[in-house]
Amino acid sequence: MNKIMELTDITKKYKEKMVLDNLSLSIYQQQIAALVGSNGSGKSTLLKITAGLVKADHGAINKLIHPLKIGYVPEVTPADLPFTPEEYLMHMGTIRGMDKQLLKNRIEMLVHTFQLQSNIHIKMSRFSKGMKQKMMIMQAMLEETDLLILDEPLSGLDPKAQMDLEKLLLTLKEQGLSILLTCHETKLLENAVDRVLFLQNHQVIDSTLSTDTIQKVNKLIFEIPARQTFEELLSSMKIIQKVHLTPMIIRVEAVVNEEATDDLIRQLLVKQVSIKQLLPINEAKEAFYQGFFKQGDEKL
């Protein structure tokens, strides 16, 4: 995986309080990295230094692709904006000094990617927090972006909006973006993040989960008529739970290898199965986070 940015020996003090102490960190292409740490540990400061918004007292920032375009989404989502998404993005782009036609094309592309076509003429003051958060990401991507930096993107979002955002981040990653974010929510950590950076004692502890070595699996939940048998399919999946919802219906929760998923679903549908949920999961990651949060609980 290619490095796009390197921070070396970064030190930052606010008055006499040490926030970051000789910290070093690398950011890789097409990777979602989460910065985890307690309140006041310096997560936001590190993000701002990475984005070039705050100057480090000491240390070097080396950009390995030129020009490296960085988009920044601050923690606070504006509560009241008297603009439609189109007006808002046009204003922000014009303030940036972007060419009008280029800006229009870019907005069109972003609206399509973020699926906001039906809301393009609605005032943003009527938007939900999740939609406003999408707008915040869009404004950060007005120019072609290589690295997207998000400060607490899930803060205050309901589970549905969190899931939408998570999917969106994965889509952006697939399009080639690197993403660096801070978060507390375990949900996002489990499903989207490739790499976790713990900020502790003014230092970063890198807990890279190499995507190359992790086997990708899906969680499949389906309901099957009790009269149907599916023993012949057991070799393709690992049953986690089997519950009789009614005497006629059994609900099954299973884990399936990513490559085997399509075939298995096809065979299940023949047996009049109703598919309830299909989620990508990462067993190694789950084990890692379970360990991490267990460790946190022990500390408490």
Partner: peptide
């Protein structure tokens, strides 16, 4: 201007 939006406008105005 909303305080959150002010940060963003500042970023764009550079």
């Amino acid at each position: 201007e909303d305080p959150g939006q002010k940060q963003i406008t500042l970023l764009h105005s550079q």
